[in-house]
């Protein structure tokens, strides 16, 4: 299959632009710093990208379905504060399921407003971003929360544990990515999400329950946030009440970098993972090169625009936009 694509020539390579760019960056960074390509460093980059990565999996599915989710950042604050706060009150066995349920409820609200009522997803999730941030602050009374007994709780395994030398966050991220990649690429539900995102009208004309499909994508997004919150809460053993602020746009940046079109109907979880890792490696590589951490934002700026530009240019068959 890969061979066929290579034979198809230029456009096919443009389609794999993210992979090419990823490899280029890896080569450049490994030439610039000999610490870059060490197992330790790679593992630490993976671990750091797990939270954004898990969230990006959910957002990718929403975006493939033709919508946006800007509420994941404050939803992450909500879920993390909730699970950390409940941990000491009712124990992790109960705290986790309650938090997951509560987060799914928020996802259901998004799904209802966007999937069933067909309201504009950008504005709805923007409103939810604000409303959920308020909820978190009301719930926590503006205080940060933390877990008192940080050593004696099994809750620590999600953020700090490891299996066979691989950190738990990496395993969770990998597992989530694989599960949802399989769902999206091989199961009927995935097919329906692509169809609804690609052409909602034609999907309805093919008997696909469009409302239900969109609703479910928001449930999945909320579930991913809940999982990310478990990792985050477990790693930090506490939470600021605005811990997820700004995550929504970073997550979206990774999704876009992975080549998922904001118009819906196209994209893939694995490419999103590449997008997430690329952003993480850029950050890491620049730091190893002795650059301050914020230079990554400058590089990200250029990388995102060039990546999407090439993608758009390949589709229209010319580099510059035809508008006068």
């Amino acid at each position: 299959m890969l061979l066929n694509r290579l034979k198809a020539g230029g456009p096919a390579i443009a389609k794999q632009g993210i992979l090419v760019a990823f490899i280029l960056f890896m080569i450049v960074f490994s030439l610039m710093s000999d610490r870059f390509l060490t197992a330790d460093n790679i593992m630490s980059v993976f671990r750091q990208s797990a939270i954004i990565g898990v969230m990006a999996v959910g957002v990718t599915i929403v975006v493939i379905g033709g919508n946006l989710d800007l509420s994941v950042g404050s939803m992450l604050s909500f879920a993390t504060v909730l699970v950390v706060d409940l941990h000491d009150k009712i124990g992790p066995e109960l705290a986790i399921p309650i938090m997951v349920l509560a987060t799914l409820c928020l996802g259901a609200i998004n799904g209802f407003l966007i999937g069933i009522l067909r309201l504009n997803s950008l504005i709805v999730t923007l409103g939810m971003l604000s409303a959920i941030q308020g909820l978190v602050l009301i719930y926590s009374g503006g205080q940060n929360v933390d877990i008192v007994d940080q050593r004696g709780t099994w809750f620590a395994i999600f953020g700090r544990g490891s299996v066979l030398g691989i950190a738990a966050p990496i395993l969770i991220f990998g597992l989530m990515a694989i599960i949802f990649h399989v769902i999206m690429s091989t199961m009927p539900f995935g097919r329906k999400v692509y169809a609804v995102g690609g052409n909602p009208t034609a999907s309805v004309f093919s008997g696909i329950p469009r409302s239900r499909v969109v609703f479910t994508t928001y449930l999945i997004s909320a579930l991913c946030v809940a999982v990310a919150a478990i990792i985050l809460g477990s790693r930090v053993m506490g939470s600021q009440n605005n811990v997820g602020q700004g995550y929504e746009l970073q997550v979206l940046a990774a999704v876009i970098l992975g080549g998922t079109s904001l118009l819906g109907g196209a994209g893939s979880i694995l490419k999103t993972v590449l997008g997430v890792l690329m952003l993480a490696f850029i950050q890491n590589g620049l730091i190893l090169m002795g650059q301050p951490y914020y230079t990554q934002w400058l590089v990200t700026w250029v990388v995102i625009i060039v990546a999407v530009w090439l993608d758009v240019a390949a589709k229209r068959g010319r580099l510059f936009s035809p508008i006068a």
Partner: peptide, 25 residues
């Protein structure tokens, strides 16, 4: 936005990160 034809949402999302980077620099 004019020359590349990339959606303004994406262009300015990138700029949001990039210009904030400039601020820090």
């Amino acid at each position: 936005v004019w020359k590349t034809g990339v959606d303004a949402f994406i262009v300015t999302l990138g700029a949001m990160l990039g210009i904030r980077g400039l601020v820090f620099v």
